[in-house]
Amino acid sequence: MSEGTNRRTVLAGGLTVGAGLAVGSTLARTATAGTTPAPNTRRSVSLVVNGTRRRLEVDPRTSLLDALRDQVGLTGAKKGCDQGACGACTVLLNGRRVLSCLTLAVMHDGDEVTTVEGLASGDRRHPMQQAFMDLDGFQCGFCTSGQIVSAVGLLAEKPDLRRAEIPELMSGNLCRCAAYCNIRDAIATAAGLGEDG
């Protein structure tokens, strides 16, 4: 393994010193294809992931989360518990937020899935991503993809969202670092809610 692909350099201001964090996941995407011979129990499903149609051969036991992470190579959605109890795997399924660990990939032929990687428009962050950044809506970052996708799903579910409703309606997303105050503020900001909103 070459030094360049392994060293993860975190950069301020986007300058190129060493290899950026993204390199790791580029590696992830290229390394996955074809590592696993498909047993004959595999089934073909077609998913539209972040706007791109993907045909996958999946073991019927494979969760949507594992399919996204290991086969599509999108590791933004995280496996925090694999029990539906932490929210780190939240994705949008046909526009609604769901836990991708609690559903099987084989059940979603033809469905549209949006992960955190699909929220930005080109280089422009989604307003929710920007608000999480600006308001420090995370610490370790592990639950963050799920928090952001969940918050985007929340705004779609409730266009008339009030600030006071955010805590209850985000309670499916645990943040063990407990950046909850900032997450709340970030969602309120992205939703254009004032202090009393």
């Binding site: 950026g20 590592t35 420090d136 993809s145």
Partner: peptide
């Protein structure tokens, strides 16, 4: 703002279980 913030909000931040190696 945290210097690693962009990667944490766009899903590109790599944690151990995200590391994929050939084979």
């Amino acid at each position: 703002t945290r210097i690693e913030a962009p990667s944490k909000v766009n899903g590109q931040a790599v944690y151990t279980a995200d590391v994929q190696l050939p084979g």
